[in-house]
Amino acid sequence: MTTITGNWDDGAQVIDLTRSPASMRAHNVSAWFGNHKVLERVSLDISAHQVTALIGPSGCGKSTFLRILNRMHELVPSASLAGTVLLDGEDIYRGPKPVTDIRRQIGMVFQKPNPFPAMSIADNVLSGLRLSGTRLHGRSAHAVVQQSLERAGLWNEVRRRLSEPGGALSGGQQQRLCIARALAVEPRVLLMDEPCSALDPTSTGVIEETMAHIAHDVTIVIVTHNMQQAQRVSQQCAFFLATHDTPGYIVESGPTEQMFSEPEDPRTRDYVHGRFG
């Protein structure tokens, strides 16, 4: 499905323009690990072209929800779920599309950078395409590598060392390499689970810039514990909460500005102002 069109020779036209950012909608999503229910009827609209931030205390199910959005949840052996998840109106769990196809359209960046350490930087960027059966060579491969690394804000740092192993980069660079790798397959949605939690402020700044930069081409959902970051990068925001015996649910969601200035729920106000617990 990943059709990369355009004239390779001038290296200018790499993005397939038919692959525009998609909206997503979760409706009454519940999730279990074994008999332990961790999400309770979560519904959320994720609009295209926007950055949606998921916030909430630890253990409230943000990662679980995010992983449900690109069908990674089902990889945990005991996991199960209920509800509906739509990608541009199409059910990703009940639809006819194979799961590999869904995941290609909905990319993911993990909390811990996970490049393939033995592969070269260039091969890392191309790995998503290879995994989906697209082998690029020569100029076309180079164009994809350059474009993806540029979009992830890493090109200038690694342009001279593309054949070095991906494991030789710093943590922040590895994370941007992972972003580049995810962007190379032209996803329509990009899920990011605390992408900056292991990084220093400078790398965090670079990644936030990267996000602002790519938000035109891809819908972004980010989980973050950093309220300032949520305010800086997101336009929409959802506040998750779980207590000892109730599974996680969304207390409030809406435009980030409103969530931070005049939240409807007192618990949201407490959380975003750091007065929680």
């Binding site: 690109n70 990674m72 990889l75 590999t100 196809d101 995941r103 290609r104 359209q105 990319g107 993911m108 993990f110 811990k112 996970n114 490049p115 393939f116 350490p117 790995s127 998503g128 995994l131 989906s132 992972c178 790798r181 995810a182 397959v185």
Partner: peptide
């Protein structure tokens, strides 16, 4: 496991 998930999340079989 992180790398394995990474490969699957890219749409790998």
């Amino acid at each position: 496991p992180g790398e394995k998930e990474g490969a699957l999340a890219l749409g790998g079989t």
